[in-house]
Nucleic acid binder design. Structure first.
Lengths: 250, 250
DNA sequence: CGCGGCTTTGAGGAGCTTCAAAAGCGGTGG
DNA sequence: CCACCGCTTTTGAAGCTCCTCAAAGCCGCG
């Protein structure tokens, strides 16, 4: 679940998703326990998996363009992606990152309200909304699980709003690092050397800062020995307590 | 639905909610068509209304403190409220405003994740989560309606994130005015002289700016004759088109 | 080894904030 | 009815954080 070295280059390769729709090994899925599917019994899962297609994307490949018809939902099985919105002059806001076990498609409207792009190589499961609705009728837990996830997402996003509206650059970066760490833990990975698959640019556009400010802030935290800058897009948190205090605005 | 002149002073009066739980005139409710309850049949509504208590709050009165046990949900029938989060040093982020027809309680966690306070005098309907769950089981549309509303809220909040992360003060204020106008229209009110019940402070804490910057920005828009500053917390939009362009970042 | 990408660091500048004070507005009481 | 008081809003001046522009460093890769 964590060998994303190819992450670095983000080359824009042709984004033709390789469909291999006849193999849906849901039962053996590594992220099932964390994903939507976690609410299903083996029987339900089997029929559910029938509607699933497996897709892989290379690092940098676009998955969704904001404004496209909202036809499918996705469950991430490996790798990471970013969701973002653009302003006409090119300013970009990364609204969130997706990791294994995450669900893409909680907000249903006519068209997608975010663009989505692979950061690393990615594999995901895809299902049409039509199929999803079919299953939602017959599988009682599914609907509730989706509602639950939407509710959680809504809570998380409030913290993001607080961060963007009121936190300093240092507080934002601290918040970001701790959040990456926590999420890695939630999906069963190590919480401490934090894997950071995304570029400084992506981080900046997520935190409402520029690349340079993000970089400077990392440097400052490093000089204060709150974090250690290991190689390979891993960052070690040296002082959780202080970082947490910073992130919470003390 | 719009005589909120007492709004201005925001005096902190004792916040004891006046319960009058035996009168629940849901059938005659002015906001029903816009609110959660809009999805119910008259029969369902009648039983549903049985669990409802009517509450009124004076301007400035707190309704919820972040961190309290999340025991009740609310539906606003008149007036306006603000939801906000605080940092330890007093920095405040207003995460949203609530108007008649809006629902409070889409995010279910153990404790409330926002504080909520009346801006004007307010009346609202309250129901315990326990009762809500009871009705959710027996009224099929209710669950779906809540899910729908959560999904919409999630979409709205993405625009807020884009705004906070990437827009200039002018773009934020323009976005804010247009959003107030649109929401007033959605609940059947006039879209043009925009009613602005909240203070400059509240607006600032919503837009991630200071009072002064908000005020200066209003002044600038006024000088450019994009808005007119009428009295009584009403602002007239003189040039929708340009304001929209500004708000969308052209 | 050298090229292209991302990241880091530096210097100067812009936008928003902070601090301060004046103006406006509503309510109260003489 | 007008003067005064408290509060909000507006306006001004100075300062700080973050941004912009620029260049050097670093790293993987051909």
């Amino acid at each position: 679940m964590s060998k994303e070295k190819q992450a670095s280059q983000a080359i824009l390769r042709p984004a033709i998703p390789k469909l291999s729709s006849d193999e849906t090994p849901c039962a053996a899925c590594e992220v099932r326990q964390f994903a939507v599917c976690g609410a299903l019994t083996p029987d339900e899962l089997e029929s559910f998996g029938g509607g699933m297609a497996t897709i892989s994307l290379s690092a940098g490949a676009p998955l969704i363009d904001e404004g496209e018809d909202d036809t499918h939902i996705y469950s991430i099985t490996s790798g990471s992606l970013k969701c973002f919105k653009l302003l006409p002059d090119g300013r970009r806001q990364v609204t969130g990152f997706l990791f294994p076990g995450d669900f893409l498609g909680l907000t249903k409207s006519d068209t997608y309200i975010n663009s989505v792009e692979a950061i690393t190589n990615v594999t995901l499961c895809r299902m049409s909304r039509k199929d999803l609705n079919k299953y939602a009728d017959s599988i009682s837990n599914l609907d509730r699980r989706l509602h639950e996830m939407a509710s959680e997402a809504l809570a998380d996003v409030q913290d993001q709003i607080l961060m963007l509206g009121r936190k300093t650059s240092e507080e934002r970066v601290a918040t970001f690092l701790l959040s990456l760490s926590r999420r890695a833990g939630e999906r069963g990975g190590p919480t401490n050397p934090v894997e950071i698959p995304m570029s400084r640019d992506d981080i900046g556009d997520f935190l409402g800062l520029t690349t340079e400010t993000v970089s400077r802030t990392f440097s400052r935290l490093r000089k204060r020995e709150l974090i250690g800058q290991d190689k390979e897009r891993k960052t070690e948190i040296l002082d959780f307590e202080t970082l947490r205090e910073i992130s919470e605005g003390f």
